[in-house]
């Protein structure tokens, strides 16, 4: 589904991604872990098409298409969803309005009829209930005055409504209490299907107790330095990240 080959990217003069290789098949869940500043968010945003980062080499193929050729909104309409590490506030625009615009943009892209407010609401109700989104929260302005946890929950709600093929969660677990964490995990697990894939970026292995990954990759200094199965996450939890950092030196790097 997603094939990343030797991807490198920089911002201004700073090289952040230094040759990433990653292969994600439909139905799989991949976890990406790694120390702060290793490039996890950058990778997520480059996949989503943020032009702050300049791709300096490599390729990304998504469902047979050259992903790097697509505009961010086209990638979104092709089924890529990014749950932001820091969700953005949009004052004066209600959550409901925003989300309907998003859902309708994708429908339009696929040549489907746009949903009116009534139809949209009918579809939203069930998902709101399962993710604990109140009527009040959905009518408030996008992320304005939301607590950290509410923002993350809102990201998952958006994901549930947009039903992406490839969902990327960037530290959606950080700052969540255990109940909220379970809600997020439920949201992701509900989305799981043989034709969808999920990439979970996380700093802690805690979330991976609820979203069981098929693969775990460790990112350090802009490279994937180690890949393994779920046990790798536990190992990291045990030993911390410092032992990983020495792997970051190019000559020692393990290709996944």
């Amino acid at each position: 589904m997603l094939e990343i080959k030797n991807l490198s990217a920089k911002v201004e003069d700073k090289q952040i991604l230094k040759g990433i290789n990653l292969s994600v098949k439909a139905g799989e869940i991949h976890a990406i872990m790694g120390p702060n500043g290793s490039g996890k968010s950058t990778l997520a945003q480059v996949i989503a098409g943020r032009d702050t980062f300049e791709v300096t080499g490599g390729s990304v193929t998504y469902l047979g298409k050259d992903l790097l050729e697509l505009a961010p909104e086209e990638r979104a309409c092709e089924g890529i969803f990014l749950a932001f590490q820091y969700p953005v506030e949009i004052p004066g625009v209600s959550n409901l309005y925003f989300l309907r615009a998003a859902v309708n943009a994708a429908r339009k892209y696929r040549g489907e009829e746009e949903l009116d407010a009534m139809d949209f609401m009918t579809g939203a109700k069930g998902k709101m209930a399962s993710l604990g989104m109140s009527d009040q929260m959905i009518s408030r302005a996008v992320n304005v005055g939301f607590s950290g946890g509410e923002k993350k929950r809102n990201e998952i709600f958006q994901m549930a409504m947009l039903e992406p093929k490839l969902a990327i969660l960037d530290e959606t677990d950080s700052g969540l209490d255990i109940d909220a964490l379970k809600t997020v995990a439920d949201g992701v697990n509900a989305l799981r299907s043989p034709d969808r894939a999920v990439i979970v970026v996380t700093h802690y292995q805690r979330l991976l107790d609820y979203i069981i990954p098929d693969f775990v990759h460790v990112l350090a200094d802009g490279r994937v330095v180690k890949s393994g199965d779920k046990s790798l996450a536990l190992e990291l939890e045990d030993k911390g990240y410092s032992w990983i950092e020495q792997l970051a030196q190019p000559e020692l790097a393990v290709r996944s």
Binding site: G49, T52, P72, E73, R75, A76, C77, F84, I90, A101
Partner: peptide, 11 residues
């Protein structure tokens, strides 16, 4: 803000 909207499919 623009990237957030774009990422949700909004031109």
């Amino acid at each position: 803000q623009l990237f957030y909207c774009n990422q949700r499919g909004i031109p």
